[in-house]
Every structure is written in C-alpha cells, then in structure tokens.
C-alpha cells in the first residue's frame, strides 16, 4: 500500500489518479441516483399524505390557514359519510363477485393459451401471434358497445335463435347485471388486458427449461398432466406477479363495469360518481365538505389493495427480479 502511494513510477501515479476519478465518478452517480429517487418518491408520497390529512380534517380546518398538515381536531366524520356514499358493503361485495373472481379466472385461463403458444408449434401460430398483438393493442373500450349489446341479448352463435324457431316463442337472455359479462371473456382468455397477461406468460414459459417437461413426456405423462404437474408448479413467480397485476386492474376497472352493470355497481364506479351521491345523500355542496368525504372515499377504495400489497410486497419486489417477463 505504502509503495503505491509513493508513486515509484509515473504510470502508477496516473493509475492512482484514474482510480480516484472513477471513485469520484461513482460517488457522483450514486449521489445523483439518490437525489432523483428521493425527489420522485416525494411526488409519489405527497398525494397519499394529502389524501390522508384531507380525509381527517374537519371542514372548518380548510379555512384555517394555520393548519396545513396536522389538523387540530381529527374527525372520522369523513370516513363514516364516505362509507355511506360508497354504499360500501354492497359495492365491496359486487367488486369481489364481479371483478376479483373474473381476475382469478383470467389468471388461470391465460396460462393454457400461453403454454400452448410457448411450447408447441402448429400451423395457426403465426396468425395467433398477430391476434395476440392486436389483443394487446386494441383496448377493450373499442369493442365495449357491441359487447354490451351482445350480452343484453345473448345469442352469440345463433343457438338461442334456433331454439326460438323450434319452440316458436321469443326468448331473451339478458346477461347484463349478471356475472357472465365479466366471467365469460375471462374464461376464454380474452378478459381485461388478457393480451399483456398472455404475453408475460409466454415470455416466462419460453425461458423455463424444457428438460423437465420432456422427461415427463418420456415417462408417459400426457400434455395436460405435464402442464399441471410440471409447468404450473415451477411458474409460481409469474403466477404471483400476474395475479397482483390482474387483481389490481380488475379492482380499478371502471369502463367495463359501468357498461355491464346498472345496479349493484362495483366500487370503482361508485367512487367515480361519488360527488353526485354526496350531493344527494347529505346535501353538501361546499367544496371543502366534499373534499373531505371524497378523499376519505379514495382511501377506503385503495385500502384493500394497499393492504394486499403490503402483505405481498416483499415477495412481489423479489419476484420482479426473477420473472423475466420481458425477454
């Protein structure tokens, strides 16, 4: 060490200087990284804090300039009213029944299609790849009108029409306001953002070593047996990641729910129309009073997802490293 510092030759001095430069450079890089990361975290955390304090304030506190963050009087009035305005018990249940179950169905139905696309070669694969791209790129809002109309008079293969002709009586199957508009597309792997889910699965399955499955083949397991007992158990990470995404997307889904339901709205729809419900229920029109209830309602809305995230966050953060969903 000592010899190094005495700089016996000009080369070693240059080397030492270069090393110091590199050290300074990496210090600057990490400093830059922390400054950027912290300042952006601020932008992320600030609205959350804003939401919480606004929800806890009394309406009078808005007019008091001395209160910026911590209100003198905490009131839970906002929350009780928000629960009422959201019609919490009903809308929570219908979110679970309509959306979350659809998410779970989607998580599993998409694995089938993706496994077929990733592991096997067949004639239609080229066309199906094009359709997969279209499925990713064309948002479901584009086809929501015909979907709604089709579901309101469900006769998609003309079977109902055929039975109608045989019986001689008009039958109308209205699937709106039932679970089927949510479940059916999910069941066939074309539900909410199914394209990107299938894409993630395909990328993952492609990266999964084939050998185990081939061994199972040789041992005489059929394709579905191989799929269920070899492929699925070894894709825990991707199943987990996709589940988190799918549940969140379904939880936040507003555009589909507002078209497919006309009563028993899921919570996302309720939240979107909360201002009207506040005016109707409590006859409150002042913006300060509304702000409190609306922010409380927002908190109530994100809380279940947030709790889920807090429980799984460690695993989620780690699994992102392993999935390789975008190879």
């Amino acid at each position: 060490m000592l010899k190094m510092k005495q700089f016996s030759t000009p080369e070693s001095k240059a080397l030492y200087q270069k090393k110091m430069m590199q050290k300074a450079g990496s210090f600057l890089v990490s400093l830059y990284r922390y400054v950027l990361l912290i300042s952006i975290s601020y932008v992320i955390i600030y609205p959350m804090v804003f939401m919480i304090t606004t929800a806890l304030k009394t309406p009078d506190a808005f007019l008091d300039p001395s209160i910026v963050w911590i209100p003198k009087v905490f009131s839970l009035e906002g929350f009780t009213q928000a629960f009422e305005a959201l019609d919490f018990s009903n809308s929570f249940i219908s979110t679970l029944v309509y959306e979350i179950v659809a998410a779970v169905i989607e998580i599993f139905s998409c694995t089938l299609a993706a496994y077929g696309m990733a592991r096997f070669d067949f004639k239609l694969k080229g066309i199906l790849n094009v359709f997969l791209m279209l499925l990713i790129f064309i948002p479901s809002q584009m086809i929501i009108i015909p979907m709604t109309i089709n579901f309101s008079d469900f006769d998609i293969l003309g079977i109902v029409g055929l039975i109608e002709n045989i019986i001689g009586e008009p039958i109308k199957i209205n699937l709106l306001n039932s679970v089927w508009p949510f479940y059916l597309p999910s069941l066939f792997g074309v539900g909410l953002r199914a394209g990107i889910i299938i894409f993630m699965y395909i990328q993952f399955f492609k990266g999964l070593p084939k050998e185990l499955e081939e061994a199972a083949w040789i041992d005489g397991a059929g394709p579905f047996r191989t799929f269920l007992s070899i492929a699925i158990p070894s894709s825990g990470v991707i199943l987990f990641t996709v589940s988190v995404f799918s549940v969140i997307w379904h939880w936040n889904d507003y555009y589909l729910a507002v078209m497919y339901t006309s009563s028993n709205y899921p919570m996302a729809v309720k939240l979107n129309t909360i201002e009207e419900s506040i005016s109707v229920l409590f006859r409150k029109h002042a913006i300060t009073e509304k702000a409190m209830i609306v922010m409380a309602a927002c908190l109530i809305f994100i809380l279940p997802v947030l709790i889920m995230y807090m429980i799984v966050q460690k695993k989620f953060v780690q699994s992102i490293d392993k999935v390789g969903i975008t190879g």
């Binding site: 089938l112 696309m117 592991r119 096997f120 070669d121 394709p223």
Partner: peptide, 10 residues
C-alpha cells in the same frame, strides 16, 4: 396438443 391448449382462446 398445442392446438388443444389454445382452442379455448381461439
């Protein structure tokens, strides 16, 4: 077999 897997999706 591949077709079998993707039939529901098709």
């Amino acid at each position: 077999y591949g077709l079998m897997f993707v039939t529901p999706w098709i």
